[in-house]
Design a binder for these strands. Structure first.
Lengths: 126, 126
DNA sequence: CCGTATCCGCCTTGATACTG
DNA sequence: CAGTATCAAGGCGGATACGG
């Protein structure tokens, strides 16, 4: 396969695309909120999550939890009782993702004011 | 304003919402790719970015760069010549965001295989 | 070369109603 | 209580054409 072009770096282009897709999935608004809620509240029921995450619809919660389960971020535990009782908790992988996002979270907290100032200045042009 | 409820944490709920919005803005697919490209390529022209970011349309590139400029992540420099010549480079703030995202980037790289395995296992259920 | 404007299809999301 | 199904609506993103 000869030499790689000099513009390439450590990882292969296709892997880069996969990594980007993964980030896109995982950086979703609802996923972030659910992740946060599971981090601070520990194992919780579907209804508890629905109440805790502001503005999420049942559909989006189900969809988000399914995707997270499929990606190995959460464990879904069904207790076969009536009425149904389903618990969700983070996996080790899910936890590690939460930690990885801490950096972004801190950045956003630390620089929110700066961004707001920048926006005001920009909007006041002309 | 008396005591805060015991379930609250360091930041106020409204700030939390603002922080979430900010993350939503900044975690956008195209923003991430443009940020990456500016990190590794330094100051570049509009056309160079258009060529470097795979699959982006002119419209999305313009839109993304405007939003980043407004948020104080990039500096736009117009050289008043014919034909026009416009350069973009990261601000300190933009650079710091790139560093904050490194954690997520590394997580995605390190755990891509694990996620793919989880997905395969999930899809093979039943 | 850089950017704006317009149109249009599609995908995501929310609301609602219903089942186990 | 937890989840699915259906439908309508809105926004996002792409293609194209044009302006400075």
């Amino acid at each position: 396969m000869a030499n790689q072009p000099i513009t390439s770096y450590s990882t292969a282009p296709e892997v880069d695309a996969l990594v980007n897709d993964l980030i896109g999935r995982v950086a979703d608004k609802w996923t972030l909120l659910v992740l946060e809620q599971l981090e601070e509240g520990g194992e919780q029921r579907f209804g508890a999550l629905a109440r805790a995450v502001p503005g999420i619809s049942q559909k989006m919660l189900t969809q988000t939890l399914r995707a997270m389960e499929r990606d190995g971020l959460v464990i879904r535990t069904v207790h076969p009782v009536i009425p149904p009782h389903v618990d969700y908790r983070l996996t080790t992988l899910g936890h590690s993702l939460g930690e990885a996002f801490c950096g972004v979270w801190h950045w956003a907290e630390a620089n929110l004011a700066a961004v707001q100032r920048s926006r005001s200045a920009f909007d006041a042009r002309d």
